[in-house]
């Protein structure tokens, strides 16, 4: 058990992993709160999975896959957002299609590149223990962009999440802010992919915020608590997975998932008393 802490003290790779988890938790708590209150987990899922297309193409042309992921995530956020705003009736199917098309493109390009299996697995399930300094820097940069954006437009984002019609009447450009919110989701998804991979990203995006929502009654507090929980889950997931050599991303999600279930049970029992 102590081995984790000994390694943490001496090995930069574990320090980086922990730091990556902390940085990713910041973005996940901030954006995840808006995903939860807007109930757009499915849209976030579409964005997250279609990102594989961008990663695959970038990988094929020997470009940084995470830059490819960022570009693909933003494009897919704009497409999905436009579908949601203009094409309400087929929203579900259309998002599902984007989801699958993105993944299919990714798999085709990765299969045509070298090192197919190892890389596909790390895109899908994350490789936090191999996170590089450059990736850490990207995560930090994305956190800063998210923070600046929220500092500027927090009130508009809350308004469109709460009552989009009233926000429209008050002259807020709701379509613009809706698309910007999805771009924020795209950025956060890319940042989380580094930690848990794109299959598990939605869990880390929504579970801490969903737990926070059960206890606090403002989006600001939800964000704070979700960031804290995210750090707790990534940290303890790393710790638990280290010695038995379990996949870190999956362990982190399992910790978050169990915490969510326990919290929901606790809340519903309390509700009966």
């Amino acid at each position: 058990m102590l081995e984790f802490f000994n390694t943490l003290a001496s090995q930069p790779f574990l320090q980086n992993a922990l730091l990556g988890g902390i940085l990713a938790s910041i973005g996940c708590g901030l954006t995840g709160s808006f995903v939860v209150v807007n109930r757009i987990g499915y849209m976030a899922g579409g964005i997250a999975h279609s990102v594989l297309g961008g990663m695959g193409i970038a990988y094929y042309v020997n470009f940084d896959p995470f830059i490819g992921a960022l570009i693909a995530a933003l494009i897919s956020a704009l497409i999905i957002g436009t579908i949601k705003l203009k094409w309400k009736h087929q929203e579900d199917t259309a998002i599902g299609a984007i989801w699958a098309i993105g993944m299919a493109i990714g798999i085709i390009f990765i299969s045509k590149s070298d090192g197919y299996n190892a890389n596909l697995m790390s895109f899908l399930f994350g490789s936090i223990l191999m996170i590089s300094n450059q990736q850490l820097f990207i995560v930090l940069l994305l956190d800063i962009i998210t923070l600046i954006f929220l500092a500027l437009f927090y009130k508009q984002l809350v308004a469109i999440s709460f009552d989009i019609e009233f926000a429209t009447v008050r002259g807020v450009n709701v379509n613009l802010f809706y698309l910007l919110l999805l771009c924020l989701v795209a950025i956060t998804v890319v940042l989380l992919i580094q930690v848990v991979g794109l299959i598990l990203v939605i869990a880390l995006l929504t579970l801490p915020a969903a737990i926070a929502r059960q206890y606090v009654h403002s989006i600001g507090l939800m964000m704070l608590m979700a960031v804290g929980l995210g750090i707790l889950f990534t940290g303890s997931g790393l710790f638990l997975s280290y010695e038995p050599d379990l996949p870190a991303g999956a362990t982190i999600i399992l910790v978050a998932g169990i915490a969510y279930l326990l919290s929901s049970l606790f809340k519903s029992f309390k509700g009966f008393n």
């Binding site: 209150v37 809350v158 009233f166 008050r170 606090v216």
Partner: peptide, 10 residues
């Protein structure tokens, strides 16, 4: 999840 005052502020 929003307070009365934050709702009115909108």
């Amino acid at each position: 999840p929003i307070s009365v005052q934050d709702t009115v502020l909108q």
